[in-house]
């Protein structure tokens, strides 16, 4: 009875503006958050310090085994191609689709930071999370350069990467503003 009353009081006293209602969980330190936070936004706020170029990336592409699955210079093998075989004159949605139907990330990603995030999380197969920030910047630069998105000598870092102009521009569908009980596509009814 006493503890129930205490709980009720605690709930009453708790102001949602500055206090928790249950008092469960602990506050992580800024360092803990930084160490865990690998979500990279389009403006690259969370990008780590580091740098890389296409030249360094070309070497890493062989060294890290990327070419073994994605083919020499990323032209495709048992893993999807990363370099389009189609010329610059081909529309981006066509140029950006590989033989297997998978999209070629360095062409179709709306932001260059997405390429960085993808490599950082997912590559290389079986050794995910082992690449250093410099290596991820270099591999990103290499893949953007072979697809002629950036010049071969451009240095990519925390500042320059988010500024890369991606060929897809604004030419992609935005997700709908989700609302409870709303149809998934207004006017479609299916």
């Amino acid at each position: 009875m006493d503890s129930l009353r205490l709980a009720a009081i605690a709930l009453l006293l708790a102001s949602p503006a500055f206090a928790q209602s249950y008092g469960v969980g602990r506050t992580p330190t800024a360092d803990e958050i930084r160490a865990m936070d690998i979500s990279i936004s389009s403006t690259g706020d969370e990008l780590p310090v580091g740098r890389g170029t296409a030249k360094e990336g070309a070497t890493l592409f062989q060294q890290k085994g990327c070419a073994g699955c994605h083919g020499k210079a990323g032209t495709g093998s048992i893993a999807p191609e990363l370099q389009s075989s189609k010329g610059q004159d081909v529309p981006v949605w066509e140029r950006g689709r590989g033989k297997s139907g998978w999209m070629i990330l360095p062409i179709t990603a709306p932001y260059a930071t997405i390429v960085w995030d993808y490599i950082n999380r997912g590559m290389p197969l079986g050794k995910e999370g082992t690449l250093t920030p410099d290596e991820v910047y270099s591999l990103t630069a290499y893949l953007l350069a072979v697809n002629k998105v950036i010049p071969e000598d451009q240095v990519l870092d925390k500042e320059s990467l988010p500024k890369v102009k991606m060929p897809i521009g604004d030419d992609y569908g935005r997700l709908p503003d989700w609302k409870h009980g709303a149809p998934r596509l207004p006017g479609y009814n299916h």
Binding site: I40, S42, M103, T108, A109, G173, L175, P176, L185
Partner: peptide, 21 residues
């Protein structure tokens, strides 16, 4: 804002209608 991290990239569509579906 929309972050488009890893799995989200698979939802990239040219048309807004297709993205919604």
């Amino acid at each position: 804002r929309y972050y488009m991290n890893y799995n989200d990239y698979g939802h990239l569509e040219k048309s807004e209608k297709e993205a919604a579906l």
